[in-house]
Design a protein around this nucleic acid. Sequence first.
DNA 1: TTTACATATACCGATATCGGCATATGATTG
DNA 2: CAATCATATGCCGATATCGGTATATGTAAA
Lengths: 113, 113
Amino acid sequence: MARAATTSDVFNAIAEPQRREILVLLRAGERSVTEVAQELGMTQPGASKHLRVLREVGLVCDRKAGKQRLYGLDASGLRPVHEWTGGFEQFWNESFDRLDAYVQDLKQTRKAE
Amino acid sequence: MARAATTSDVFNAIAEPQRREILVLLRAGERSVTEVAQELGMTQPGASKHLRVLREVGLVCDRKAGKQRLYGLDASGLRPVHEWTGGFEQFWNESFDRLDAYVQDLKQTRKAE
DNA sequence: TTTACATATACCGATATCGGCATATGATTG
DNA sequence: CAATCATATGCCGATATCGGTATATGTAAA
């Protein structure tokens, strides 16, 4: 068995840097496949394939517009990722606190010398 | 070229379901490799390899404890992911608003009938 | 030092990924 | 219908992934 399918898994879909770039780009509004390819410096098939993955996990939606197909952001799928990482928020604050405590300790020690 | 190396990339590291499970487990405190393997039903080499990846991207830290090696959570690396997804928060609220507007619209239409 | 336990690594097979190129499918216009 | 533009798909090679088993390395106790 290899890595879990990139399809139907948002975590895998956003593991690809170029796909993250596409999502960021689409925050500015809908884009056609060719526009995505041009603005991000990728080939047309490349853009099309990445958009396919993003569509399959529901991060983008598409609609026909003449001979073009416009892709738009559907960021709701990112919410679970945001919430999952948010479940660790106390821990990175904690390590911050630990570091802070450590620094405070250093200060104390210096004063005592 | 294949997928970007899982090493040195937090997004890729957490793309693996088992690695996410490990991180969740470690929220409860440090664990040895064997404990991780047992509690999550994976083989010892399997746990070791996943922990290696997590260590290389800085999501866990390890310390020697007798003949064991204890792995602990270092969640600060998850913060960028949390923030990156947070950059889309307005967009999933937006789609929520759109849905809400749609529902309101439905209500109006019913009333009018 | 020998033994026992804990962890890491090496190797393997099956498979999925990504990028590039060529080409097929689709849609619009003349 | 033919030509044109836009997009999707198929195929390929190179490579990375993951899981499993066997084994090497490391550490502590007898």
